[in-house]
Design a protein around this nucleic acid. Structure first.
Lengths: 144, 144
DNA sequence: TATTATTAAATTGTACACAATTTAATTTTA
DNA sequence: TAAAATTAAATTGTGTACAATTTAATAATA
Protein backbone atom coordinates (compact mmCIF):
# COMPACT_ATOMS: atom_id res chain seq x y z
CA UNK A 1 0.00 0.00 0.00
CA UNK A 2 1.20 3.49 -0.74
CA UNK A 3 1.99 4.98 2.61
CA UNK A 4 1.46 8.51 1.41
CA UNK A 5 -2.00 7.94 0.05
CA UNK A 6 -4.39 7.60 2.94
CA UNK A 7 -2.88 7.29 6.40
CA UNK A 8 -2.69 11.04 6.83
CA UNK A 9 -6.30 11.72 5.93
CA UNK A 10 -8.28 13.08 8.84
CA UNK A 11 -11.10 10.64 8.17
CA UNK A 12 -8.78 7.68 8.64
CA UNK A 13 -7.56 8.74 12.04
CA UNK A 14 -9.05 7.38 15.22
CA UNK A 15 -7.68 10.13 17.43
CA UNK A 16 -9.41 12.94 15.59
CA UNK A 17 -13.05 11.85 16.08
CA UNK A 18 -12.17 11.12 19.68
CA UNK A 19 -10.79 14.62 20.11
CA UNK A 20 -13.68 16.27 18.26
CA UNK A 21 -16.34 14.19 20.01
CA UNK A 22 -14.93 14.93 23.42
CA UNK A 23 -14.92 18.67 22.75
CA UNK A 24 -18.42 18.69 21.29
CA UNK A 25 -19.90 16.83 24.24
CA UNK A 26 -18.08 19.05 26.73
CA UNK A 27 -19.58 22.00 24.85
CA UNK A 28 -23.05 20.51 25.41
CA UNK A 29 -22.41 20.61 29.15
CA UNK A 30 -21.64 24.32 29.09
CA UNK A 31 -25.17 25.83 29.24
CA UNK A 32 -26.05 23.60 32.21
CA UNK A 33 -22.71 24.13 33.95
CA UNK A 34 -22.99 27.89 33.43
CA UNK A 35 -26.11 27.83 35.58
CA UNK A 36 -24.13 26.50 38.53
CA UNK A 37 -21.04 28.57 37.65
CA UNK A 38 -18.70 25.63 36.99
CA UNK A 39 -16.46 24.85 34.03
CA UNK A 40 -16.30 21.25 32.80
CA UNK A 41 -12.96 20.65 34.50
CA UNK A 42 -14.27 22.13 37.74
CA UNK A 43 -17.34 19.90 37.37
CA UNK A 44 -15.40 16.63 37.04
CA UNK A 45 -13.26 17.75 39.97
CA UNK A 46 -16.40 18.27 42.04
CA UNK A 47 -17.67 14.84 40.95
CA UNK A 48 -14.60 13.32 42.56
CA UNK A 49 -15.07 15.48 45.65
CA UNK A 50 -18.75 14.48 45.98
CA UNK A 51 -17.61 10.88 46.00
CA UNK A 52 -14.48 10.89 48.14
CA UNK A 53 -14.94 14.04 50.28
CA UNK A 54 -11.20 14.37 50.83
CA UNK A 55 -8.19 13.70 48.63
CA UNK A 56 -4.74 15.07 47.91
CA UNK A 57 -3.73 16.75 44.67
CA UNK A 58 -1.65 13.86 43.39
CA UNK A 59 -4.42 11.28 43.74
CA UNK A 60 -6.96 13.72 42.35
CA UNK A 61 -4.71 14.23 39.35
CA UNK A 62 -4.45 10.48 38.81
CA UNK A 63 -8.22 10.12 38.80
CA UNK A 64 -8.75 13.06 36.45
CA UNK A 65 -5.65 12.59 34.26
CA UNK A 66 -4.58 16.13 35.15
CA UNK A 67 -1.38 17.49 36.70
CA UNK A 68 -0.72 20.13 39.34
CA UNK A 69 -0.19 22.75 36.67
CA UNK A 70 -3.86 22.44 35.81
CA UNK A 71 -5.19 21.54 39.23
CA UNK A 72 -3.48 24.15 41.39
CA UNK A 73 -5.21 27.20 39.85
CA UNK A 74 -8.45 25.26 39.42
CA UNK A 75 -8.55 24.23 43.07
CA UNK A 76 -7.78 27.78 44.15
CA UNK A 77 -10.80 28.87 42.15
CA UNK A 78 -13.02 26.21 43.71
CA UNK A 79 -11.72 27.30 47.09
CA UNK A 80 -12.55 30.95 46.36
CA UNK A 81 -16.11 29.78 45.62
CA UNK A 82 -16.07 27.96 48.95
CA UNK A 83 -16.71 24.54 47.40
CA UNK A 84 -13.48 23.02 48.74
CA UNK A 85 -10.92 23.68 51.43
CA UNK A 86 -7.16 23.41 50.73
CA UNK A 87 -4.66 22.65 53.49
CA UNK A 88 -1.31 21.00 53.88
CA UNK A 89 -1.17 17.57 55.46
CA UNK A 90 0.18 17.68 59.01
CA UNK A 91 1.86 14.31 58.56
CA UNK A 92 3.58 15.25 55.32
CA UNK A 93 3.62 18.90 54.43
CA UNK A 94 4.38 18.14 50.79
CA UNK A 95 0.80 16.92 50.40
CA UNK A 96 -2.04 19.31 49.91
CA UNK A 97 -5.33 17.92 51.16
CA UNK A 98 -8.48 19.02 49.39
CA UNK A 99 -11.70 18.68 51.38
CA UNK A 100 -15.25 19.33 50.23
CA UNK A 101 -17.19 22.03 52.11
CA UNK A 102 -20.87 22.16 53.10
CA UNK A 103 -21.46 24.52 50.21
CA UNK A 104 -19.69 22.08 47.91
CA UNK A 105 -21.89 19.25 49.15
CA UNK A 106 -24.98 21.38 48.61
CA UNK A 107 -23.99 22.03 45.01
CA UNK A 108 -24.49 18.38 44.18
CA UNK A 109 -28.28 18.64 44.20
CA UNK A 110 -28.08 21.34 41.54
CA UNK A 111 -25.84 19.17 39.35
CA UNK A 112 -27.69 15.88 39.60
CA UNK A 113 -29.86 16.41 36.52
CA UNK A 114 -27.07 17.49 34.21
CA UNK A 115 -25.90 14.08 32.90
CA UNK A 116 -29.33 13.07 31.65
CA UNK A 117 -29.92 16.48 30.07
CA UNK A 118 -26.68 16.22 28.12
CA UNK A 119 -27.21 12.62 27.03
CA UNK A 120 -30.69 13.62 25.86
CA UNK A 121 -29.14 15.77 23.14
CA UNK A 122 -27.43 12.85 21.47
CA UNK A 123 -29.04 9.70 20.16
CA UNK A 124 -27.04 6.66 21.17
CA UNK A 125 -28.42 3.26 22.06
CA UNK A 126 -27.68 1.79 25.46
CA UNK A 127 -25.67 -1.05 23.87
CA UNK A 128 -23.50 1.31 21.85
CA UNK A 129 -22.94 3.56 24.83
CA UNK A 130 -21.87 0.54 26.84
CA UNK A 131 -19.58 -0.67 24.07
CA UNK A 132 -18.04 2.77 23.71
CA UNK A 133 -17.50 2.99 27.45
CA UNK A 134 -15.72 -0.39 27.50
CA UNK A 135 -13.42 0.37 24.59
CA UNK A 136 -12.45 3.77 26.02
CA UNK A 137 -11.44 2.27 29.35
CA UNK A 138 -9.67 -0.55 27.54
CA UNK A 139 -7.59 2.05 25.70
CA UNK A 140 -6.98 4.09 28.85
CA UNK A 141 -5.86 0.97 30.72
CA UNK A 142 -3.61 -0.17 27.88
CA UNK A 143 -1.85 3.19 27.89
CA UNK A 144 -0.99 3.39 31.60
CA UNK B 1 -33.68 4.82 41.53
CA UNK B 2 -32.13 7.37 43.82
CA UNK B 3 -30.99 10.14 41.56
CA UNK B 4 -28.32 11.29 43.96
CA UNK B 5 -26.67 7.94 44.34
CA UNK B 6 -24.75 7.14 41.19
CA UNK B 7 -25.35 9.42 38.24
CA UNK B 8 -22.70 11.88 39.37
CA UNK B 9 -19.96 9.33 39.79
CA UNK B 10 -17.10 9.83 37.37
CA UNK B 11 -17.09 6.16 36.49
CA UNK B 12 -20.68 6.30 35.31
CA UNK B 13 -20.10 9.14 32.89
CA UNK B 14 -19.48 8.54 29.22
CA UNK B 15 -18.04 11.98 28.58
CA UNK B 16 -15.20 11.63 31.05
CA UNK B 17 -13.42 8.58 29.52
CA UNK B 18 -13.88 10.24 26.15
CA UNK B 19 -12.24 13.41 27.42
CA UNK B 20 -9.44 11.55 29.21
CA UNK B 21 -8.81 9.15 26.33
CA UNK B 22 -8.62 11.97 23.82
CA UNK B 23 -6.09 13.84 25.92
CA UNK B 24 -3.95 10.77 26.59
CA UNK B 25 -3.75 9.83 22.92
CA UNK B 26 -2.93 13.39 21.90
CA UNK B 27 -0.17 13.26 24.48
CA UNK B 28 1.22 10.15 22.75
CA UNK B 29 1.53 12.16 19.55
CA UNK B 30 3.67 14.81 21.20
CA UNK B 31 7.15 13.23 21.02
CA UNK B 32 6.68 12.50 17.31
CA UNK B 33 5.13 15.88 16.56
CA UNK B 34 7.92 17.63 18.46
CA UNK B 35 10.36 16.23 15.92
CA UNK B 36 8.60 18.05 13.11
CA UNK B 37 7.85 21.10 15.28
CA UNK B 38 4.04 20.82 15.13
CA UNK B 39 1.46 20.80 17.90
CA UNK B 40 -1.45 18.37 17.63
CA UNK B 41 -3.82 21.09 16.47
CA UNK B 42 -1.33 22.30 13.90
CA UNK B 43 -0.92 18.67 12.78
CA UNK B 44 -4.63 18.05 12.15
CA UNK B 45 -4.75 21.39 10.35
CA UNK B 46 -1.90 20.28 8.11
CA UNK B 47 -3.70 16.97 7.53
CA UNK B 48 -6.58 18.91 6.02
CA UNK B 49 -4.18 21.06 4.00
CA UNK B 50 -2.34 18.01 2.63
CA UNK B 51 -5.68 16.76 1.41
CA UNK B 52 -7.42 19.86 0.08
CA UNK B 53 -4.46 22.20 -0.71
CA UNK B 54 -6.67 25.28 -0.39
CA UNK B 55 -9.57 26.16 1.91
CA UNK B 56 -11.04 29.14 3.74
CA UNK B 57 -11.05 29.51 7.51
CA UNK B 58 -14.76 28.84 7.90
CA UNK B 59 -14.69 25.52 6.05
CA UNK B 60 -11.47 24.54 7.79
CA UNK B 61 -13.16 25.24 11.11
CA UNK B 62 -16.11 23.05 10.17
CA UNK B 63 -13.82 20.16 9.32
CA UNK B 64 -11.77 20.53 12.49
CA UNK B 65 -14.57 21.59 14.87
CA UNK B 66 -12.59 24.74 15.66
CA UNK B 67 -13.50 28.43 15.41
CA UNK B 68 -11.58 31.48 14.20
CA UNK B 69 -10.52 32.29 17.75
CA UNK B 70 -8.43 29.14 17.71
CA UNK B 71 -7.58 29.05 14.01
CA UNK B 72 -6.49 32.64 13.43
CA UNK B 73 -3.40 32.54 15.68
CA UNK B 74 -2.68 28.93 14.69
CA UNK B 75 -2.73 29.72 10.98
CA UNK B 76 -0.51 32.75 11.55
CA UNK B 77 1.96 30.42 13.22
CA UNK B 78 1.83 27.93 10.34
CA UNK B 79 2.32 30.83 7.96
CA UNK B 80 5.36 32.04 9.90
CA UNK B 81 6.80 28.53 9.46
CA UNK B 82 6.05 28.84 5.75
CA UNK B 83 3.76 25.80 5.66
CA UNK B 84 0.72 27.77 4.49
CA UNK B 85 -0.07 31.07 2.80
CA UNK B 86 -2.93 33.31 4.01
CA UNK B 87 -4.66 35.77 1.70
CA UNK B 88 -8.07 37.37 1.34
CA UNK B 89 -10.35 36.13 -1.39
CA UNK B 90 -10.57 38.57 -4.29
CA UNK B 91 -14.21 37.64 -4.89
CA UNK B 92 -15.26 38.14 -1.27
CA UNK B 93 -12.81 39.90 0.96
CA UNK B 94 -14.49 38.54 4.07
CA UNK B 95 -13.01 35.15 3.27
CA UNK B 96 -9.45 34.29 4.12
CA UNK B 97 -8.02 31.64 1.82
CA UNK B 98 -5.43 29.31 3.26
CA UNK B 99 -3.15 27.61 0.72
CA UNK B 100 -0.47 24.99 1.36
CA UNK B 101 3.09 25.90 0.36
CA UNK B 102 5.84 23.75 -1.15
CA UNK B 103 7.43 23.51 2.27
CA UNK B 104 4.06 22.46 3.70
CA UNK B 105 3.74 19.75 1.06
CA UNK B 106 7.26 18.57 1.82
CA UNK B 107 6.44 18.20 5.50
CA UNK B 108 4.00 15.40 4.72
CA UNK B 109 6.76 12.85 4.11
CA UNK B 110 8.08 13.49 7.60
CA UNK B 111 4.64 12.96 9.13
CA UNK B 112 3.56 9.86 7.28
CA UNK B 113 4.87 7.38 9.84
CA UNK B 114 3.34 9.08 12.88
CA UNK B 115 -0.13 7.43 12.93
CA UNK B 116 1.23 3.91 13.02
CA UNK B 117 3.80 4.80 15.67
CA UNK B 118 1.08 6.18 17.93
CA UNK B 119 -1.32 3.30 17.38
CA UNK B 120 1.52 0.93 18.18
CA UNK B 121 1.55 2.18 21.78
CA UNK B 122 -1.99 1.04 22.44
CA UNK B 123 -3.40 -2.42 22.06
CA UNK B 124 -6.74 -2.35 20.31
CA UNK B 125 -8.09 -4.93 17.90
CA UNK B 126 -9.03 -3.87 14.41
CA UNK B 127 -12.69 -4.70 15.07
CA UNK B 128 -12.84 -2.61 18.22
CA UNK B 129 -11.06 0.28 16.55
CA UNK B 130 -13.57 0.12 13.73
CA UNK B 131 -16.50 -0.05 16.15
CA UNK B 132 -15.14 2.87 18.14
CA UNK B 133 -14.68 4.89 14.97
CA UNK B 134 -18.28 4.24 13.89
CA UNK B 135 -19.82 5.15 17.21
CA UNK B 136 -17.79 8.37 17.47
CA UNK B 137 -18.93 9.56 14.06
CA UNK B 138 -22.47 8.49 14.88
CA UNK B 139 -22.36 10.73 17.95
CA UNK B 140 -20.73 13.59 16.05
CA UNK B 141 -23.37 13.35 13.32
CA UNK B 142 -26.22 13.17 15.83
CA UNK B 143 -25.02 16.38 17.48
CA UNK B 144 -24.80 18.57 14.35
C1' DT C 1 23.73 12.19 60.77
C1' DA C 2 25.02 14.90 56.82
C1' DT C 3 24.43 14.29 51.97
C1' DT C 4 21.84 12.72 48.23
C1' DA C 5 17.71 11.37 46.11
C1' DT C 6 12.94 11.46 45.78
C1' DT C 7 8.48 13.33 46.06
C1' DA C 8 4.47 16.73 45.86
C1' DA C 9 2.88 21.26 44.69
C1' DA C 10 3.55 25.39 42.76
C1' DT C 11 5.30 28.21 39.14
C1' DT C 12 6.49 29.47 34.39
C1' DG C 13 5.76 29.58 29.62
C1' DT C 14 3.44 28.15 25.41
C1' DA C 15 -0.61 26.81 23.01
C1' DC C 16 -4.98 25.83 22.59
C1' DA C 17 -10.42 26.32 23.10
C1' DC C 18 -14.31 28.89 22.92
C1' DA C 19 -17.88 32.49 24.11
C1' DA C 20 -18.65 37.12 23.19
C1' DT C 21 -17.62 41.22 20.86
C1' DT C 22 -15.78 43.96 17.13
C1' DT C 23 -14.65 45.08 12.42
C1' DA C 24 -15.25 45.02 7.72
C1' DA C 25 -17.39 43.22 3.63
C1' DT C 26 -21.38 41.67 1.31
C1' DT C 27 -26.48 40.79 0.84
C1' DT C 28 -31.01 41.66 1.63
C1' DT C 29 -34.77 44.49 1.83
C1' DA C 30 -37.62 48.50 2.59
C1' DT D 1 -30.06 52.61 -3.52
C1' DA D 2 -29.64 53.67 1.36
C1' DA D 3 -30.41 51.24 5.69
C1' DA D 4 -30.60 46.93 7.99
C1' DA D 5 -29.21 42.30 8.32
C1' DT D 6 -25.95 38.83 7.63
C1' DT D 7 -21.54 36.86 7.22
C1' DA D 8 -16.40 35.84 8.00
C1' DA D 9 -12.29 36.81 10.54
C1' DA D 10 -10.10 38.90 14.03
C1' DT D 11 -9.88 40.29 18.73
C1' DT D 12 -10.61 39.97 23.72
C1' DG D 13 -10.92 37.59 27.93
C1' DT D 14 -11.16 33.44 30.77
C1' DG D 15 -9.88 28.86 31.64
C1' DT D 16 -7.70 24.94 30.77
C1' DA D 17 -3.61 21.58 29.43
C1' DC D 18 0.89 20.22 29.99
C1' DA D 19 6.09 20.17 29.76
C1' DA D 20 9.75 21.88 32.30
C1' DT D 21 11.57 24.04 36.22
C1' DT D 22 11.61 25.44 41.01
C1' DT D 23 10.75 25.03 45.89
C1' DA D 24 10.17 22.72 50.01
C1' DA D 25 9.61 18.57 52.59
C1' DT D 26 10.68 13.87 53.44
C1' DA D 27 13.13 9.51 52.73
C1' DA D 28 17.18 6.86 51.66
C1' DT D 29 21.90 6.03 52.15
C1' DA D 30 26.85 6.52 52.55
Amino acid sequence: MDKNSDTLKLENQLCFPLYACSKEIVRRYKPYLDKIDLTYTQYITMMVMWEVKQINVKELGEKLYLDSGTLTPLLKKLESKDYVKRERSKHDERNLIVTITEKGEALKSKAVDIPEKVSACMTLSEEKAQALYSVLYEILDSME
